[in-house]
């Protein structure tokens, strides 16, 4: 998950600011910093979005590799936040996986597939994941969540 941009706590509040001329800005702050953020955002514009400390080093190490299809380097992605083609997900796999983990908390798809892909493999992936979540819920004695997950598992199994 994201870190709060104002302190080191995990960010629980994710805001998309709608600025003038249809520009958007993403912000990630924790609950404690959120009221202050709201206060400041009435007057400010252009609050800096902090980047990870390791980003520069990472770029020096990996940033020069180039996608043979579309020609982008990972540093281009860092700057534009857009990939160049679908092959980039393989070319920059090592760099992208931690990022996906940060954004989504998961790194494996378990939703819809085009017909040409076997449905079963995906159901398996989702079941594995739901079972892990169920295990964690039971461990922390969150029985409400556990019951909900059991229902979900049943739905997936029956589908």
């Amino acid at each position: 998950m994201h870190k709060c941009e104002r302190c080191a706590s995990p960010a629980t509040v994710h805001i998309t600011e709608v600025l003038a001329e249809a520009k958007f800005e993403e912000h990630h702050v924790c609950e404690t910093c959120y009221p202050k953020y709201m206060e400041d955002s009435q007057t400010k514009t252009g609050a800096a979005i902090t980047s990870d400390a390791g980003a520069e080093l990472e770029e020096a190490l990996f940033g020069q590799q180039e996608c043979p299809d579309c020609g982008i380097k990972f540093v281009d992605f860092r700057n534009s936040h857009r990939l160049g083609c679908s092959r980039d997900y393989q070319v920059f796999q090592n760099e992208l996986l931690p990022l996906l983990e940060n954004i989504h908390g998961e790194t494996r798809h378990c939703g819809k597939t085009p017909r040409r892909y076997p449905q079963t493999k995906l159901a398996e992936a989702e079941l594995t994941q739901l079972r892990q979540r169920l295990k964690r819920a039971v461990e922390r004695e969150d029985y409400e969540e556990a019951a909900r997950l059991r229902d979900q598992i049943k739905t997936v199994e029956d589908a």
Partner: peptide, 14 residues
């Protein structure tokens, strides 16, 4: 469609 089994539908923004 651009799709892979691991990551699903592949989009310009992750």
């Amino acid at each position: 469609y651009a799709f892979n089994e691991e990551l699903g539908y592949l989009t310009a923004c992750p």
